[in-house]
Every structure is written in C-alpha cells, then in structure tokens.
Design a protein around this nucleic acid. Structure first.
Length: 155
DNA sequence: GCCAACGTTGGC
DNA sequence: GCCAACGTTGGC
C-alpha cells in the first residue's frame, strides 16, 4: 500500500505546531479523538504516512507544516481515566472504543497556508476540509492536494 | 459573540 | 426507528 496523506486539526491555543516541535523527541500522542469517523481514519494510518498540521480556531486558520506517523493506532488510555475530559464510561477495556496514534514533527512551512488561500485554489475544491460543514478532525488528503499545499507552503 | 452544521442522546 | 433537544466545532 502506498503512503497516504492526511490532515490533523489542532487548536493552537491547546496544542500548536510549535508545541509539537518542543515536545520530547518532537513526538506526541494524538489523543482525544472521540468521533467515530475520525477514529476509523486513525485506524487506517500507517507508519510513514504524512499529515498536514492544521491550526483550527486560529487567526487565520492555516496549515502550518507536516508530521509523520510513527506509531499506528493503539488504545487511547484517557478513555478509561475518570478524571480525564476524554473519559468514556461506556468504553470496554477488553474492546477499547477509542484509539490514538503517535506523530512526529516533520517540516514547517516557509509560510502558513491559510484557509482563504486553500479556498482560492480551484484544484483544492474537493478537499474534505473545504466541504460545507466539515468538522472532521482527522481527514484524508489526496496525493495531488498534498503536493499542491506543500508547494503553497514553500516546501 | 454569533450561528450554521453536524453528531449524539434519549424519550417515545 | 424516529426525531427533538442538546452539545460541540469552528469559521467569521
């Protein structure tokens, strides 16, 4: 299977691309996904896949760089922690409902690629991110979209 | 702060 | 199984 491309959303006020760069081994657990469609996509991610790091709820919202998948889906421990905001009392430890992956900092864009710039590109019109009402925090990105966006970002 | 779009919950 | 109510997301 060929390498695939993805987009991961994060609110920079919660966890920014710079926060990832400053993390141990520049790696983090992508925890807290509590949406089934996004979870299913996490399960499809393979070692070596790459993803855009997208700042949502930012001014302006923008893709700011890339990350690499370094660990494939495994159970998200927070779902069993009653003190965690990500706790899910209905998840069965014998059959965990939620997973996380590990991603490592890749490359920072020379300049952020903002949401308006993405919208302005005809060739990106099909992006999941740009669909009306799209809220998925984990999204697939086509190889063509990937190349276009990296170019826009100066990579 | 507003609000449209979406997902989930729970009564029936 | 339906669907109204509610909570969340995220752009603006």
């Amino acid at each position: 299977m060929a390498r695939r491309y993805w987009l991961l959303k994060s609110e920079p006020s919660t966890f920014s691309f710079d926060d990832l760069r400053a993390s141990p081994r520049r790696t983090t657990r992508w925890e807290g996904v509590r949406n089934y469609q996004a979870r299913n996509l996490l399960r499809e991610m393979k070692r070596g896949d790459e993803a855009l790091f997208y700042h949502s709820n930012a001014d302006p919202p923008a893709a700011v760089g890339t990350v690499t998948l370094v660990r494939e889906a495994y159970p998200d421990a927070d779902q069993f922690d009653p003190s965690s905001p990500y706790h899910d009392a209905k998840s069965d430890p014998a059959d965990p409902r939620w997973v996380m992956v590990d991603v490592r900092y890749g490359k920072a864009f020379a300049r952020p690629v903002t949401l308006p710039e993405l919208r302005a590109r005809k060739s990106l019109a099909g992006m999941v991110l740009l669909r009306k009402g799209s809220r998925l925090s984990v999204q697939p990105v086509s190889a063509a979209e990937w190349r276009t966006i990296l170019k826009l970002g100066g990579l």
